[in-house]
Each structure stands twice: as C-alpha cells, then as structure tokens.
Design a protein around this nucleic acid. Sequence first.
DNA 1: CTTGCTGCAAAAGGTTTGCACACCG
DNA 2: CGGTGTGCAAACCTTTTGCAGCAAG
Lengths: 153, 153
Amino acid sequence: MKEPLVVFTDYLARKNLKMTPQRRLILEIFLKESGHHTSEDLYNIVKKSDKSIGQATVYRTLKLLCESGLAKEVNFGDGVTRYEQQYGFSHHDHIICEECGKAIAVVDDKIEQLQERLAAEHGFVLTGHEMYLYGICADCRKKDKKLKADTED
Amino acid sequence: MKEPLVVFTDYLARKNLKMTPQRRLILEIFLKESGHHTSEDLYNIVKKSDKSIGQATVYRTLKLLCESGLAKEVNFGDGVTRYEQQYGFSHHDHIICEECGKAIAVVDDKIEQLQERLAAEHGFVLTGHEMYLYGICADCRKKDKKLKADTED
DNA sequence: CTTGCTGCAAAAGGTTTGCACACCG
DNA sequence: CGGTGTGCAAACCTTTTGCAGCAAG
C-alpha cells in the first residue's frame, strides 16, 4: 500500500495542484491525531507547529484529503463536521456514547448485506451509507451507577 | 391514540407553556406537509397563512414539537436540519437518492436486531440510531440511461 | 508571465438569542 | 404585577469565498 503522503501528492498532481508545506503539515497532523476531529480541532493543533497558518487552509486541505480518499467526513449530528482517516481503514460505522461523546468504529458484515438488499427492494442501487448507533458506553453506565449510589447515601 | 394537537397541548401544559395560534398553525402545517422539510420550508408555507409570523417562532416551535415526540430531526448530510413526523409513525431509516434528493422511509427488523447486538458486543446500551442509505433510485437510473442513449446518437 | 497557494477578512447560510412589547391571568 | 409568547434584528457558529500578494515553474 502506498504511503498516504504519496497518495496525496499523486492526487494533487493529477489535479494539477501542488504539495506545499502547509498541506504536508496538515496531512501529517491529521494522520497523527487519529480519531474524529473537527476542522477547528485540527487547526488548533496545526497552529502549534505553524503559527501563521490560516483556518481556510485547513478547511481547504481537509476537503482535498477527502477527495483524495485519505479522509472522510463524519457527522455525529452535533452540527460540526468531523474528519476521520479513511485510507488503509476499511469501511465502518460508529457507535457514539451520548454521555461522554466517545465514538468507536464498528462493522457488521451481515448488516452491510442486509442494507444492500433493503435498498434493492426499493429500487435503489447503493453508493454508500452511514449508520450511527447512539447509546451509553459501559464506562459511563458504571459511573452513573456509582453516582447514583453515592447520592443515595 | 391521542390526537397530535392534544399531545402537543398536554406537553405544553406539562412544561407550563401555552398553546397559541402560532404554535397551532405550525403544528397543523407540519402535519399536513408530510415528508422531510426544513424549518425554512415550513416557514415559507406557514407565512402563506399568517404573513406576520417570524422565523424564530417556527424554529422554536419545531424544537418544541421534537421534545413533545411529535417531530423528529433528520439530517441527510447536506448541512440542513429537516423535520419529519414521528408521532404515530414507527421508527424507520432512510434511503436518499443522491441525484434527485428523494428520500424514502425504510425499516428492516433484522437490521435493527443486529444493531442492538452489535452495540451490546461493544458494551453499549443503545438509546437510538440513525441509518442513511445513499444511492440512486430507479427513476434516476432510467433517466440517466435515456440521457446517455440520447447523447450517443 | 502564468498558474496555483495562502492568509486575511468578509460573506454566507442556518440557527439561536436578546429585547421590547403584547397578552393573559 | 408575574409569567410566557412573539416578531424583529442582531448575534452566533461553522464553513466558504474574494482578493491581494506571494511562490514556483
């Protein structure tokens, strides 16, 4: 598998765009900070390395990263766009804890198959899908239980 | 099943809020216009009946409708919040045509079960979920085919 | 030169909020 | 009066865009 930097450079070249120090830095930080970060999160981190960088550059670069297949937008329904690594990661969906905001990646082949079938039954050819499961994670349930016990003292 | 108007009035009463002509009108239009409408869509329709109504009132009322269980926010990933009827409708997910924007409701019990199980496997207790299938609908595929044939003439 | 890139600031688009006034008890 | 509701406009927040200047081929 090609390195992300190469993938990105190739993508840029194909579109007659150039690899620049800013783009390289944003890619680097994006790769290092795995998880689900907003453009602003990443902007703040990037600024630590390059104080002069502009927000717009981060937005623009993240968009390019998505187009190149390295990144993917995800939307947890809180009105902010987050980005996650896509390259070298297989497709997955998310379970989000409504209490602590933690999000983990999950896959279920059976579900994927059923989605295809369900779409077909309605005359659709699927191009993609998103599934977000919202719940309370084990940690938070434990914390809640403890809190409740403490309060009842 | 109680009528939506009653549900809403009850909900308002419970929160020490009042049923007003504006709220009644917005509810009425929301119920009549089934489907997935943005706040602005509904605002424009409502304005036809009451020119003096303000956007803010529509936003505020839709939020109340959601809290009362009559409405539900849905998010097709285009940056706008849409609202759909929830009361008297069972849970469902959506298939959205990426070409014409048409959205239809779907359910698959098997998928629902697998979602529960998948969440449990990761230590989560589900509180809800959202699934969006993106694809091309039969109509658009037909149109595309025709268009392609015509171009090739 | 020509084309693309950047930072900045302004604009945009959707949603929320502050406020003064109106209403109802 | 006390509380809530409303329209309006302003504020907000995230994201996009226009632009002047810069950098590289």
